[in-house]
Nucleic acid binder design. Structure first.
Length: 194
DNA sequence: TGGACGATCCCCT
DNA sequence: GGGGATCGTCCAT
């Protein structure tokens, strides 16, 4: 991996923090603020796009603001937002949301198998697998444009100051030496891990 | 054709 | 803090 990380992609990843992810599901709107992301790009050995393009990862090579969904550990789905240009092979993993609307439905989606379990807003979207489960995201949304329903990202966001964004190493990486490509909102209670 | 593995989550100790 | 769940994908035979 090169010593320096691609600055334009890092800016795109940071730029997602504070925006809303909006999901239309069965006529209801589910939404949350993006509070934690990780960047993966083509020069990164931990990235799916590091190896040859395949059927599985082709959506990762779409131009920015498309969904790249993949299955992890045979159980969970993870949602990425593509970044950069066509064929650049970069994507931003949505790791955590702060739930805004449709919270009851998110809880229902998350706890379908254990309806009686007690839940807390902070455990609904505090991880990539949890987020897709809460919002009902699966492979049907792979390569979907995030400019329009049923899944989109707001173009506006609140003011985020540079010192409100924490940069740190990613989570769960085993194939590569770690790089500081995880970004989250300082002090936010809804991130996956402190 | 088969075996190993993974950008995770949750329960159990 | 450790390990099981569970399956698509990739690579080696």
């Amino acid at each position: 991996m090169p010593a320096s990380q691609p600055a334009h992609l890092i800016e795109e990843a940071k730029g997602l923090l504070g925006r809303s992810l909006i999901r239309q599901l069965n006529g209801e709107q589910l939404a949350g603020t993006i509070v934690e992301v990780e960047l993966y790009h083509e020069q990164d050995p931990a990235s799916h796009s590091f190896k040859r393009k395949s059927d599985r990862n082709s959506a990762m090579f779409l131009p920015r603001n498309h969904a790249y969904v993949y299955r992890s550990y045979g159980i969970h789905y993870c949602l990425n937002v593509t970044a950069g240009e066509q064929d650049e092979g970069a994507a931003i993993l949505i790791r955590a949301l702060q739930p805004l609307t449709g919270i009851e439905t998110m809880a229902s989606n998350r706890l379908r198998k254990r309806p009686s379990a007690t839940w807390d807003k902070k455990m609904l979207c505090s991880g990539p697998g949890k987020t897709t489960q809460a919002l009902g995201i699966d492979l049907n949304l792979n390569s979907h444009s995030l400019d329009a329903p049923p899944l989109q990202i707001s173009s506006s966001r609140g003011v985020i100051k540079p010192n409100e964004i924490v940069t740190t190493t990613r989570i769960g990486i085993s194939q590569a030496r770690e790089a500081p490509l995880r970004f989250y909102l300082r002090g936010n209670e809804f991130i996956s891990k402190k």
